[in-house]
Computed example of a mutant assay.
Amino acid sequence: MDWPRIILLAVAAQRLLELVLARRNTDRLLAEGAHEAGAGHYPLFVALHGGWLAALFVSTPADAPVDVPLLALFLMLQAGRVWVIATLGRFWTTRIITLDGAPLVRRGPFRWLRHPNYLVVAGELAVLPLIFGNAQVAVVASLLNIPLTFHRIRVENMALGRCIRDAIP
């Protein structure tokens, strides 16, 4: 059985469903008067994540062995991803969308980390390729992700800081 392709197709399907959810949440928030920050760097994330999956499809042999402990780690990362999405609820998007007056989420994984999703994503970019022994894709994707994520966190912190300041009477 072609387990690498099955796993990669499942991840691709998950990402597509998440994009539908993110788009719905983004449209709803913008209709409520929310603002987007950092739209200029968003296509770079789309390119990174799309390129990461495409590189895995192209460079991973169909008969590549699957590292089961790493697959289990990846599934735990997926649980973390779902936890973040569920905690943010209608505020979860793949973009930086802020709604003035909305409270900053401080429950779920946000009790311990300000940006838990970025930690999950960093783990995913490295672990999924390693499941199939594809260290090259893991390293390249991880290295490309570092500056993008640091930039995005700066932009997001500024946007969230503006919302918090604007909400203070």
Rank of each mutant, 00 (worst) to 15 (best):
L53A: 07
A62T: 06
D100K: 12
V137Q: 13
A54W: 11
T26E: 14
P116E: 07
F91V: 00
V140P: 06
T94G: 15
T149K: 03
R28Q: 12
L148K: 07
N117F: 13
I96A: 01
A22Y: 02
L21P: 00
G89K: 08
T94I: 02
G50A: 09
A34H: 04
F110M: 08
F45A: 03
G101E: 06
T98S: 01
V58L: 09
P103G: 07
T93S: 09
A34C: 10
A22L: 05
A34S: 09
V82F: 13
V68C: 03
R106G: 00
T149F: 04
V84A: 10
G50K: 12
L148Y: 08
V68M: 10
L125E: 06
N25F: 03
H35F: 04
E36C: 08
L125R: 10
L99G: 02
R106S: 10
S59N: 15
N25W: 01
L70Q: 02
A31Q: 09
P129G: 13
H115I: 01
V121E: 05
F74E: 05
A47T: 05
V120N: 02
T26Q: 14
G50V: 06
R107C: 07
E36P: 03
L44P: 00
G101Y: 07
R114C: 06
S142E: 05
A55K: 03
Q78C: 12
L88M: 14
V139G: 06
L44D: 00
R90N: 03
N117K: 07
L128N: 04
A126P: 09
A22H: 11
T94A: 14
A55D: 04
L128T: 04
R107L: 00
A126F: 14
L56D: 01
A55C: 13
G80R: 11
L75R: 09
R111D: 11
A141D: 11
I131M: 04
R111E: 11
I97Q: 00
P103Q: 13
R24N: 06
F110Y: 13
W83Q: 12
F91A: 04
G40V: 12
F74R: 05
R106W: 00
G123F: 14
P109D: 04
G51P: 10
P129N: 08
L119D: 00
W83F: 09
S142Y: 10
A138L: 05
T87I: 08
G50H: 13
L128F: 05
L128K: 06
L125A: 08
I97L: 00
V58Y: 08
L53V: 08
R107K: 13
R28C: 04
V137F: 12
R24P: 01
L75N: 08
A79E: 13
Y118P: 06
I146R: 07
L104E: 08
T98R: 02
D27R: 15
N25V: 03
A122L: 14
G101R: 06
E32T: 07
G101T: 09
A138C: 08
P103S: 08
T93R: 01
F57R: 03
N117G: 07
V105Q: 03
H35M: 07
